[in-house]
Computed example of a mutant assay.
Amino acid sequence: MIQIVQAPNPYDATRLKTIFMAGSIEMGKAVLWQEELIAQIKNVFGDQDLFILNPRRDDWNSSWVQEKENAPFHEQVSWELEGLENADCIVYFLQAGTISPITLLELGLYARSNKIMVLCEKGFHRKGNVDIVCERYGIPQYETLSEVVLALEKLLA
Rank of each mutant, 00 (worst) to 15 (best):
A71K: 10
R57L: 13
E80L: 02
A96F: 01
L53F: 07
W60Y: 03
N43S: 12
W79Q: 02
E82F: 04
A87C: 08
F73N: 08
A87V: 08
D49C: 08
Q40D: 10
Y92C: 13
L37T: 00
A71Q: 13
E67M: 10
L53A: 05
E80V: 01
F73T: 09
D88V: 09
N61E: 00
H74Q: 15
W79V: 06
T98Q: 02
R57N: 11
R56G: 02
L50T: 02
L53D: 11
R57S: 13
C89A: 03
S63Y: 13
D59I: 03
D49E: 15
F51Q: 12
R57F: 09
T98P: 00
V65Q: 15
Q76L: 00
I90M: 05
L53G: 06
K42L: 03
N86F: 02
A71N: 12
K68D: 14
D47K: 08
Q76D: 00
L94Y: 12
I41C: 11
N70W: 00
L81C: 06
Q66A: 13
K68V: 09
V91R: 05
V77S: 07
W79E: 01
L37D: 01
D88K: 04
V44I: 15
E80R: 00
S62I: 12
D58L: 12
D47E: 14
N54I: 08
F73P: 02
I38F: 05
V91W: 06
V65R: 14
C89I: 12
W79Y: 08
T98I: 01
N43A: 09
E82K: 15
Q76H: 06
R56I: 09
E69N: 13
S78C: 07
H74D: 14
R56E: 08
W60A: 05
V91S: 06
N61D: 15
S78V: 13
I38W: 04
L53S: 00
D49F: 06
A71I: 15
G46K: 11
W64F: 07
F93C: 10
I52F: 01
D49Q: 14
L50Y: 07
W79F: 04
N70I: 01
N86H: 10
N86Y: 04
A87R: 07
V91E: 11
V77T: 14
L53N: 13
E69G: 12
I38N: 03
L81G: 06
S78F: 08
D59N: 10
G97W: 06
I90R: 07
